[in-house]
Amino acid sequence: MCRGDGLMSESEDVHAYTVRLELTDRPGELLRALEPIAETGGNLLSIFHERGNLTPRGDIPVEVDLEATPERFEAIVDALKAADITVIEAGSDRYSEEIVVVLVGHLVETDLSHTLSRIQEASGASIKDFALSAPEGEDAASSARLRMATEAGKGEEILGAIREIAAEKELSVIEPLGEVGR
């Protein structure tokens, strides 16, 4: 979070970047897109592969969070383009705030992947990681932890979107407690 504050002039400084790609629905495409990142020295943080959510052209939107120096990041974007990968958006430091919530309820029965893509769509946040715990089987309530990256100051908006979607699906949201004295 907030990496590189005050260190912008140092070229060895590593930043967090988000790249939105659209991949043709063909085996091997995801790997083909990730290769240039790894080969150019980018550090992959997370990949969100929205398989169930095709673009009008039938492509699969993919969001990649990575860390790299500004020079390397430029090289990564060039390499992606050279490999004919559609780069929709490539930006630095777009996500500087992190929000973690725990969802509780009948997560599996209420279509978890739909819930997650709704949250991602409605809030504009990127889901960085996700963990599900349903130790008591499908009948009992299960829990899921979501870590989201968002633009600074957007936290309350995102929580609002999550609350709404959770209410529709009768899930409860355990929200983080904001810092005092913000």
Binding site: V100, V102, V104, A131, S133, A134, P135, E136, A140, A141, S142, S143, A144, R145, R147, S172, I174, L177
Partner: peptide, 22 residues
């Protein structure tokens, strides 16, 4: 209605869950 799985997930992430009044 809080399942212990919710607390487990919080603990895994260095967090916990408490009843907080604001």
């Amino acid at each position: 209605d809080l399942p212990s799985s919710a607390l487990d997930l919080a603990t895994e992430d260095g967090k916990t869950i408490r009843l907080i009044g604001e």
